[in-house]
Amino acid sequence: MIRQLLVKKVTHLASIVLSISVISFMLVSVSPIDPVRAYIGADMLAISRAQKEKIEERWGINEPMHVRYVKWFTELLHGNLGHSFIFNQKVTKVISTRFATSLWLMAAAWVISGMLGFVMGIVSGVMHGTFVDKLIRFYAYMLASTPTFWMGMLLLICFSMWLGWTPICCATPPGILLENVTFGQRIYHLILPAATLSIIGIANITLHTRQKLIDVLQSDFILFAISQGETIWGATRHHGIRNIILPAITIQFASFSELFGGSLLAETVFAYPGLGQATVLAGLKSDVPLLLGIVLFSVFFVFTGNTIADLIYTLVDPRIKAGAPK
């Protein structure tokens, strides 16, 4: 069953990558971006029309779109995503180093929002209908409707500028060589962006966990546990959590797209040099190869999250696991 599922997933991924690559390639082609102008920038005035035409010919800009696409895609299949001129590095290299930096941030935010949201959802669910529940729900709805960049700036003003507890920007202290940065310093620079980014995810998981727990607490096996002398908190601890943890983890894995989208804003506010910031830069400076590379990478990233979410039940839930043919 797992093999079948994986085959299905891979086919699915291939079809998504193909269609996304076509669509984004087309979008970029019809957009008013002039690659030569984007590459040369301010020196554009210094080159002659003839020189420009020569570059255009070298780059194959005037060939039909499908020809260019096939060329690009063939290179892509060979693992070559082209060259990013704003970083003057291979696109694959930019994405991998930038993603490594983002990974810290995204992982921290993912874990924090998951755990906090889960705990808040449980408290809210057990105490549903009470003042505490209303407070948590109000809080969750409020967080859910707060724009990320606004939240980030608020935190930045409050903790970095007024209180001076957290750094103003970046992933590492300025002026220190990357290899000399300590783990503590990394964490220190991670706190605010991670807090900002995790806030997006909390509401979703809180409200979801709350509802799932309320449903589970209505079930016969909870009533039976109570008849055995269990308290409502005891029943939640011994039977409730067990029955809601899988759906919660699934939700968390399925939220990779929000995480990626959020990292764009959070990294920009905090000048955190991750993939999100690179995306914004690539967009602003019309770095087409990098932009296309990141789009494909994000598809892959979100797809991975969704696939894990889909696989969890098959791998972990004993009812499904035992049902699978050996």
């Binding site: 079930s219 016969d220 039976f224 008849s227 039977h239 009812r319």
Partner: peptide, 14 residues
């Protein structure tokens, strides 16, 4: 102690 009516009274995941 209760012997409940339904076998759904056992925790399905324990």
């Amino acid at each position: 102690a209760l012997i409940p009516q339904s076998i759904g009274c056992l925790d399905p995941l324990m």
